[in-house]
């Protein structure tokens, strides 16, 4: 093993250069939220649990027939999750309402929240999950290798996986009807079919003012919380409700965008590969010096420890 003086000096130079880079280039983490993105506002006080949204979703996306018929209300006896066979599901929750009126149900439609800074897209090693300009979090199966890290990363625990397919399983989740909205200028299937206008489609910032409007006009009807305004750094699907969200099966999610910490770690350490280059330079230097030392003292102890244990 030979390291001559010139290579060594070269390495030191590269290391020095690399060490200078991060200070000027390491920028603070910035949200990649799309400024003019679409979103949906779900008003849980309006939903009647008709499951027309589920039916329309399955039809548009070519998903299989569900186990329980769309007309069959017994499906509400258990809590379901969106998964590989259904991009959206509606669950029912019962609450005491006043003294005399007994139990009143609240129906909750669940699907991908289309985060402004999606953890799944940040985690995906090939970029098969990505945030589109129109606000949708889109899955490109042609880049997917099936590592399922998106499922680990998602704080809303949404993406499903086709475990039963032997060779070409896919990650399955709501597409925000990406093609219908972008190419055909139509509404997402679930929004278009809803008979009680429980879901409003629009620009995210318009939806936020609509939500605030409803909350301020009818404070008795709603709890003071727009779910998705801040959760996980803000989501493009948002909810307002008459019942606290923690009682409706909504997961507890921090307000900061989940990719912020990991992306900061990755970029601080590895932008322009500065730290590996510096480490390479340092180790090269150490190796060179030890080589010289070993050459000078041929009768050295060969690094043998001073005292035997």
């Amino acid at each position: 093993m030979e390291i001559n003086r010139r290579t060594f000096m070269g390495m030191l130079g590269a290391a020095g250069l690399a060490a200078a880079v991060p200070k000027s280039q390491a920028e603070a983490w910035e949200s990649k939220a799309k400024p003019d993105a679409f979103g949906c506002l779900v008003d849980l006080t309006r939903c009647i649990g008709c499951r027309k949204c589920e039916e329309a979703c399955n039809a548009v996306n070519g998903l299989p027939e569900p186990k329980t018929d769309f007309e069959d209300a017994t499906v509400f006896n258990e809590q379901r999750r969106p998964g590989e066979k259904a991009y959206t599901v509606v669950n029912r929750h019962f609450f005491e309402q006043g003294k005399d009126s007994g139990l009143a149900p609240t129906f909750v439609k669940m699907q991908c929240m289309h985060c402004q800074d999606p953890a799944c897209a940040s985690a995906c090693m090939t970029g098969a999950m990505y945030k589109a300009e129109n606000g949708a979090v889109v899955y490109d199966v042609s880049k997917c290798i099936g590592c399922r890290y998106c499922m680990v990363a998602c704080p809303f625990e949404i993406p499903g996986y086709e475990y039963d397919k032997a060779l070409s399983p896919r990650v399955m989740k709501c597409t925000f009807c990406f093609d219908r909205v972008t190419k055909q200028g139509e509404l997402p299937a679930c929004v278009g079919v809803c008979p009680v206008e429980a879901i409003t489609f629009g620009r995210r910032r318009d939806l936020l003012s609509l939500a605030r409007d409803r909350l301020s006009k009818d404070p008795d009807r709603y709890v003071e919380h727009i779910f998705g305004e801040h959760e996980a750094g803000g989501t493009n699907w948002m909810y307002i409700s008459g019942v606290p969200f923690s009682k409706l099966g909504f997961p507890n999610v921090p307000d900061r965008p989940l990719p912020q910490l990991t992306e900061s770690i990755q970029h601080t350490l590895f932008n322009y590969l500065w730290s590996p280059i510096v480490l390479f330079g340092i180790l090269g230097g150490v190796m060179y010096m030890n080589k010289q030392k070993n050459k000078e003292s041929a009768d050295s102890r060969d690094g043998r420890p001073r005292r035997q244990t």
Binding site: S122, A123, C124, M125, T126, G127, A128, K143, C144, I145, G146, C147, R148, Y149, Y161, E162, Y163, K165, L167, S168, P169, P259, T262, E263, I265, Q266, H267, F270
Partner: peptide, 18 residues
């Protein structure tokens, strides 16, 4: 899941991903 696609990270890169 898609063992045959193992090479794809060599072509498609996401530098945000650990």
């Amino acid at each position: 899941g898609r063992s045959w696609a193992f090479w794809k990270p060599l072509v498609y890169h996401n530098y945000n991903s650990a």
